[in-house]
Nucleic acid binder design. Sequence first.
RNA 1: GCGUCCGUAGCUCAGUUGGAUAGAGCGCCGGCCUUCUAAGCCGGAUGCCGCAGGUUCGAAUCCUGCCGGGCGUGCCA
Length: 610
Amino acid sequence: MPEALSRSTSALAQAVAAVLHPSIPAEAGLSLDDVAGMLAPPKVKNAGDLAFGCFRLAKALRNAPPKIAAELADALPKGGIIKEAVATGPFLNLTIDLGAMASAVLPALARGLGEPVVTRDEKVMVEYSQPNTHKAFHVGHMRNVSLGDALVRLLRAHGHEVVAANYLGDVGAHIAKCLWWYLDMLTQDERTPPAEAKGEWLGELYAKANNQLAQWEDDAKAGDADAQAKLEQAKARTTEILLKLEARDPELTAVWKKTRQWSLEEFDEIYAWSKVVFDRVFYESEVDEPGLTLVQDYLEQGVFVESEGAVGIFNEEIKHMPFFMLRKRDGTSLYSTKDLALAKLKFEEYAIDRSIYVVDMRQSDHFKHVFLTLKKMGFEQAEQCHHVPYEMVELPEGAMSTRKGTVILFRALRERMLGHLEEAYLAKYRGDWSDEEIAQTAHALALGAIKYGMLNRDVNQKIVFDLEAWMNLEGNTGPYIQYSAARLGSILRKAQEAGKTLQAGLVDDPSTLAAAGATLEQPEERELMSALDGLAVAVHNAAEGLKPSTLCTYLHGLAKAVNRFSTSKACKVIDQEGDRLQGRLLLVTAANEALRWGLWQLGIPSPARM
RNA sequence: GCGUCCGUAGCUCAGUUGGAUAGAGCGCCGGCCUUCUAAGCCGGAUGCCGCAGGUUCGAAUCCUGCCGGGCGUGCCA
């Protein structure tokens, strides 16, 4: 029987609600689950382990919340799981029996949380990453990758079957610009890419092309006739390239395939390093023609209309910009054209029930149009399409700009982060640890720093990426949480070396479990147990709200509780014996599992030691 | 102009469906390494929650209006 990894109420709240619920007058109209949902750790200190706010009962019981709290405090049976019940104003504050608390919270974690099991009918596709080939991959792209991958993992933990999808931009104007530079501005020798990072090299060509065109455009506007001529010539050439590509010109198609492959290989390498896996990769090139076919069909059906030579639809529901263009005057497709075909393809190919798009916030209007248009095309599943917007990543000096050369490329980020980690933190282990372990640890920590940094913030907050600041791995960071897990791992390792291990079968034996749990009387232990109790609810909320940031906040709080425990002289594990040893080993085992599993739901691996 | 997002401590941000004394990280000041990792722990200072109304027993949270900033807004993706 797999434990539920995602729950709307905590294990402890459920156990307490089972006792509390019968004491609440039926007139209150609260179900057992309602009561469990209303139980939460108190927000003030020294008020017990769980609090029950009586506000919602006031109306039905025709009584003031403080009085209800007081009456409940009297009526509640003590001596079982509830050790003490005190009314403090409108709150009923409960102190829980330690053995019972440990029994409710720790076994499921200590057994190991394992792999997610499908418990929900709804099959979900999450589309994310969507990089363009022939362009560089930079830090901004990492926010999308981190977010999309975390959503895939969270939705799986939540019980959904999930298809992780990527959608590569391998057609369009940017390709023509890049190939123009590659073919016309480079000599034969210069057309040989470097051995590594061919995609990044292509991105440089694209940037050069783009910058040159922008420069000519500026100069032409300022009255420079020479620039005007060059600009027109270049535009004619890029259009020619684009048209030849669409016509499947053999020579150009061969160049396109070869260069495209360089980008694809680099993307694969980046994804592998980032530990993200896609079940399906869509390409713009595969939905281009189907999109145009759809546009033609629905134009003939009268759903779409012609306007100023272009084809589109007037979505009057979007008052500030009703026209949604689906085909350009020259008959070629747009982003929107392909999105129509892609949306249908997703549902047809995978029989999904919900389709999620992780795309930055600037495209919110675009997706409103896409979904609305699909609906008008008679595609009912449009209502199950959902855009998850997120704000941009910027640099301290402002938005990233290829033209100004202010982008931080992925490879530079990775190398700087790895180098910093090895020098500033891991150098002390050199010789002691194998080079391989040091490299693997640096890798895990770099992922922790980057992904946690990208996920910790709410999606509608901008992220200012200051590389130097991101090198500081203290405080509320991925490595801080990884560190707290590593210390727990260290405790378990040393305990084992001393021959002290968790007694086999303890988690399944109620009486020894309760006896061991009852020894966890230090404040640090109690707080840690309470924090651990919140894991499944944190996962539930993050998955339902599509907000990995809330899990980050939870894990940071859990890590703080762990570190208080780990540094407390009163909570030593190795020098203990008997029930207290077992209780602490159980707590450490559970916390270790919870932290590492929780981080992994964000796509962050935890090194065994650091 | 219209749409949308943001505005909370010096800085960067949390703040569950309205509920207890608004929290955390960074930075600053002061402590803690002879026993499970100092990437850590403990203590201290700092707030007209942008402004003004409204709803409510109760508002950082909900409603309205304003102010300031970002982004989007017909042939890019």
